[in-house]
Every structure is written in C-alpha cells, then in structure tokens.
Computed example of a mutant assay.
Amino acid sequence: MRSARHLHDAVSALLLFLLLSAVVPAARAQQETDDESEFSYVCGAENGPENWGNIKEEWATCGTGLMQSPIDLSDRLASQTPHLGYLNHSYRPAEASIVNRGHDITVMFHGDAGSMWINGTAYHLRQLHWHTPSEHRVNGRRYNLELHMVHLSSENKAAVIGLLYKIGRPNHFLHELESYLQRMASTNEKEENVGVVDPWVARGDGEAYYRYMGSLTTPGCDEGVIWTVIKRVATVSSEQLKLLADAVHDGFDMNARPLQKVNYRDISFFSPDDHHERYYAAADH
C-alpha cells in the first residue's frame, strides 16, 4: 500500500514538473521580458546588448546562441524559394489593450485575433510591438521603424512577422492608436484597454518576404523562432515615430538590438513573380 502511494506521489510530481516546463517557456516566448530595468540598448554599458547573456543564467543564449536575431537580409545570401508560397494567415478583430512594457509599446490581444499557417501548423497571433529604428536590415539598409507580430503555436513555438517602415505618409494602424499613445505618454500609464483591434490593418500590403530561423530579440533571446520579414517597406510619419518614443520610458526611445551573425543560416526569399513563373513553367510541361 505504501509503495503504491509512493508511486502515485512520484507520478504526480513528474506531471507537475512537465506542466511547469511547458508553461514557463510559453509565457517567456509570448511576453519576452517585462523587466526593463535589468537590460538596456546602450552599447558599451554594463547591461548593454553585448552583455545580455551575462546578466542572468536564463539569458545565456543571448551571448552563446548561433541562431540569433536580427540579421542583415542580404539578397546576395538569400535563395529564391518559390515553393514557400504566399503567406497563409486569417486575422480577425479582437479585444486588446496597449501596454507600456518599458522597453517597448505592445498591443496585447485578449481574444482570438486569428492565425498564420506555416508547414501545416497554426501559429496564433498574441501581440505586436514596435522597435525604433528597425532591427533587421535589408541589403545593409536600416529603416526608421519595425513592427513585430508575435505568434505562438499550440506547442509554444514562436513565429514572428516583421514589417519595416520609412518616414513618409502616416501609418493607418498607428493613427487609430494615437489618442491612447498620447494619453500614455502624458500620464505614464502602464496599460489601457483599446477595445477591438483589427490586425489586418497592421499587416498591411506586400507579398514578397524573407524567411529564416532565428530568435527573440530581447532577453532571454530564445531560439527556434520562424522569422518572416516582409520586403515591401511601409511608411510612418515622423510625428508618429515621436509619439512611440515619448510613450516608452526614458532610455528606450531607441530600442533596436544590434545585428547578429548569420552563421551560415539559410535565408529564403519568396516573390510572387518567381511563384508565377514556376507555375506556368510546370503547366507548359
């Protein structure tokens, strides 16, 4: 009887361990880190990007990982990959709040905001946030702003869509959030409900994209992230850029991680033109 009880206790402990092991990475992948006081984007500082891996044991990958993000998406290194096909996503309006995480401004979805599909797996949209200037570069060029749309699968694997912006006409999605950002900047509020938000508006246009395997770009820099960076560059006004900078905490108005080494990773590129050429070539045969 005693041995049966011991077996029951051991099985219960094992199940609890497995549950916690699954939950903790999920929370980290979705929220990244919420404690901005422990790291900075100031190169050369004790808690700057080059030292993130030394600040905490669980952040070690920031310094030792070989698949880190962001990178320079060079057409010289990218391979044309028509079989990737068009992005398969189905977004929908959902309840959301806008959150000042200190190191960035984030829109957190509280309902079902839809998904994107990669290789038969659904990745559910959880949140989106901005980095100034852009973290990824394209052929060496850095842009004024980058939006990250963070998705998670049921197995807690992350997939992120990155969108690049240059100074120009106001961005429609940011325009819809301007009143909340202004209030957040003037009151130092941490979070505010914004009602229903439509992520289709954030996604914008552009079908050509780069694809590679990388990491989160804030501590703990977890790897295994599927990155999709849209090639078409959208626009944002200088006033909207300033509004995002004013809303975050002092010292985080520039919140872009420096470029990381590619380390012989494959960079794929999908273009609708290449996809059409392959389709019609196959049809001719």
Results as ranks from 00 to 15, higher is better:
G251V: 09
E58L: 08
Y264C: 04
H8N: 13
G251E: 08
D266E: 11
L241C: 09
V194F: 06
L87W: 03
G65P: 00
L16A: 14
A45T: 07
L244S: 01
D274H: 10
I98H: 07
P219K: 08
V150C: 02
K166W: 09
W200C: 04
A78C: 05
P93K: 11
G168P: 01
G220S: 14
Q68S: 03
L152W: 07
S238G: 11
S268N: 01
W52Q: 02
Y264K: 13
H175K: 13
N193D: 09
P133M: 02
I226Y: 07
C43N: 15
N51Y: 04
L7M: 14
L147T: 06
N171K: 05
E223L: 12
C62N: 00
S154G: 08
A247R: 04
Q31Y: 14
Y143R: 02
Y143K: 00
L147A: 13
L145P: 03
A159K: 09
L163I: 09
S134Y: 00
V24M: 06
V196Q: 00
A10W: 09
V225T: 10
H110T: 15
H124S: 14
R92P: 11
S3C: 12
I105G: 07
H129K: 11
Q80V: 14
N188T: 03
A113G: 12
H148I: 01
N156G: 00
D9M: 14
A113R: 02
F39T: 05
R141I: 01
I105Y: 05
R278N: 06
Y279R: 15
A256W: 03
S37T: 14
E46P: 05
E38N: 10
D205R: 00
D198A: 04
H136V: 07
F173C: 02
D35F: 08
G140Q: 13
K166E: 14
F269K: 00
A4T: 09
K56E: 10
L66G: 09
S97T: 10
T235R: 07
L66T: 13
L152K: 03
E57H: 12
D35A: 14
Y86P: 08
I167P: 04
W59S: 00
F17G: 00
R278D: 02
G114E: 03
N139D: 15
G63Y: 06
G102M: 05
D222Q: 15
